[in-house]
Amino acid sequence: MKAVVLGGTKGMGRALSRALAADGHDVWLLGRNAEDLARSVEDLKARSPSVKVGAAPCDLESPASFGPALDAADAGLGGFDTVAVTAALFGTQDQLEADAALLQRLLTVDFAHTVLFCEAVRTRLLSRGGGRLVVFSSVAGERGRKPVVLYGAAKAGLTAYCEGLDHRYRAAGLVTVCVKPGFVKTGMTAGLKAPPFAGEPEQVAVDVLRAMKRGAPVVYTPAPWALVMAIIRMLPRFVMRRVGF
């Protein structure tokens, strides 16, 4: 694979980039901060000296950055065939309810701009016969739930987009993998109380890499979350109204 990872300097994106490089795939990192990108490039080079690694600036808050970033990745990798989007904003329900500006940013970045970025990737990949698009959504998008009403709504939209995209374009060669991580211990969730089955980013990376190779349309990770969400999906509305999760 020749993979582009948006958000590859932190959290699950960092773990996925390392797993891709360790598995022998070339990796191009996209992110907001040039110095941070440079440090992650050095990290990947030191870990996996035999693969090609590079980086370019890209900011989900600024759709104008998408085209030049993908151009740079295409030039650097000699045409990429895989793109993973791990970047997103996060806020707790309380933070988002209290701060409309933060809410607007989050809804814009996590849904609207993420879809715009994926659309830019879609046209590129389809123009060369297809490829893989891996989008990190969340289990928060599975049901409307009290602790993640707003963040979950953005992720629900993203999940629906991924499913539609996969149905519409898989025959044309574009495989869309929707990743639904449960609680994973990253910088994003630092300070939140970890529930049972909280996972590590390295485990997520292993699961996602396997799903990418298989072309699985949906992957719950770490694995126990598939069962947890299967139950939550089946709970009747009157139960969801009463429970706190």
Binding site: G11, R39, S40, E42, D43, A46, R47, P49, T186, G187, A190
Partner: peptide, 19 residues
């Protein structure tokens, strides 16, 4: 402060073994 997420290799020289 917990340092475990700051886990990047910043430079490695295979000739000298300095990391």
């Amino acid at each position: 402060a917990g340092s475990v997420l700051a886990d990047r290799v910043l430079a490695f020289n295979p000739e000298t073994g300095v990391l």
